[in-house]
Amino acid sequence: MTKSYSIFVAIMLALSVSAEGSLAAEKVRALIPVRNIDESLAPFPVAKYLGYYAQEGLDVDLLAVGGSNEVAIQIAAGNGDVGEATPAQAVIGMQQNASAPLDLRYFYNAGYRNIWSISVPADSPVKTIADLRGKKIGVTALGSAGTTYGKAYIRSGGLNPDIDVTFVPIGAGPQAATAIQQKVVDAIVFWDAANVRFELSGINVRPLKLDAKLEALPDVSILARNDVIRDKPKMLVGFARAVSKALDFTLANPPAAVLITWKMYPESRPKEKDPQKALAQGLKISQLRMAGWTNPKTGGKNGLFLEDDWKNLGAFLLREKQITQPVPTSRMYTNDFIDEINKYDRAAVVRQAKEFDLKSVQQ
């Protein structure tokens, strides 16, 4: 072996065992159902920033793709390895009698309550869903999950969503805010974090009361193709374990999670110049979503699917004529990885969160 060749080999070996092990790590494309990753999705950037993915031998790219429907389609097409998506959209595509069934399944439950609400401006005379007869309902797009939930909410108020109201696509962010301010619509069906952002921009909205079963529908969770579930269980367990650790970290130290998210995604930071007021705004968004990350019925196991809740989801989709035949819960999700995902020192993660130096991520 020549000296030059020996040096080459040594360099390559050194690179392969670099601090993060990045060259040896398995690349994972994780699709996130928003246009911009923010505090409501803190566990994903927290897991990356703190090296939880790297500890599992993974090099994760977090890719914001705009919506749950897009996530499901792109994962099914092989344009991503894992993705978070609202199950209402994905389960519709899982039907065996669909023209092109989505060969997907959820493997980690990330949302134990429905994040969608139907709201009206705070000063609106509308008090109940029944009062929306003849009104215009704003949604991001007519094919969005908001429309699916919106029709269910309208029907729960004794109205016909195809006759008694009109659904109007108003986009998201500033475009949606303008539509509300200019009274283009009388009510909106948006997710929790979006409603908080409206409030922070000076547009106060008031949610209308929903049926308890609708409020308890499971929501955004993590899925993959069935062939990936079959062939790459280690990768999926590692990814979900990293997210689970980050969830525990976020629950134990919400300010740190918010600041880490802003560190990684500066565009998500509020425009408020005062650091304390900005943090309070970020915490309001984060803590609203945190309320649905766990459920006492799981017995402390992060990510565990609760069959009754998912049966309720299937019944909801069937009742709303979003599916034409029942989808078995075994087709929707698997709990096979949950025990392995939860095998880590949770106390150590919580301790890390409590001892985290906020100054290290303050801008």
Rank of each mutant, 00 (worst) to 15 (best):
T2F: 03
S4A: 13
I7H: 05
F8G: 00
A10G: 06
A10W: 01
G21P: 09
S22C: 03
A42Q: 04
A42E: 06
P43F: 05
F44N: 05
V46I: 09
Y49L: 11
L50V: 01
G51C: 08
A54T: 04
D59T: 01
A64L: 11
V65Q: 09
G67A: 12
I73L: 15
A76H: 09
A77T: 00
N79T: 00
V82S: 12
P87D: 11
P87Y: 12
A88S: 14
N97M: 08
N97K: 10
S99A: 15
A110F: 14
I115P: 14
W116T: 01
I118K: 04
A122L: 11
A122I: 07
D123T: 04
D123C: 02
S124F: 05
K127W: 00
A130N: 04
R133S: 08
R133H: 08
G134Y: 07
K136H: 07
I137F: 11
A141V: 01
T147K: 14
T147W: 03
G150V: 01
Y153W: 06
I154T: 02
G157A: 04
G157W: 01
N160E: 10
D162A: 11
D164A: 05
A172G: 11
P174H: 00
A177H: 11
A179D: 02
Q181W: 04
Q182R: 12
Q182D: 10
V184M: 13
V185G: 06
A187V: 00
V189C: 13
V189K: 05
V196R: 13
E199W: 14
L200N: 12
V205G: 02
L208N: 08
K209C: 00
A216V: 01
A224N: 02
D227I: 00
M235D: 06
V237Q: 11
F239S: 01
F239P: 01
R241V: 05
V243F: 14
D248G: 04
F249W: 10
N253C: 03
P254S: 08
A257H: 07
S268Y: 05
P270T: 03
K277T: 05
Q287F: 00
L288I: 10
N302L: 15
L306W: 10
W310H: 13
G314S: 10
R319K: 15
K321R: 15
Q325G: 03
Q325H: 02
P326A: 02
P326M: 03
P328W: 07
P328F: 10
R331E: 13
T334L: 13
T334N: 08
D336G: 03
Y344D: 12
A348T: 05
V349A: 09
Q352Y: 08
K359S: 15
Q363L: 10
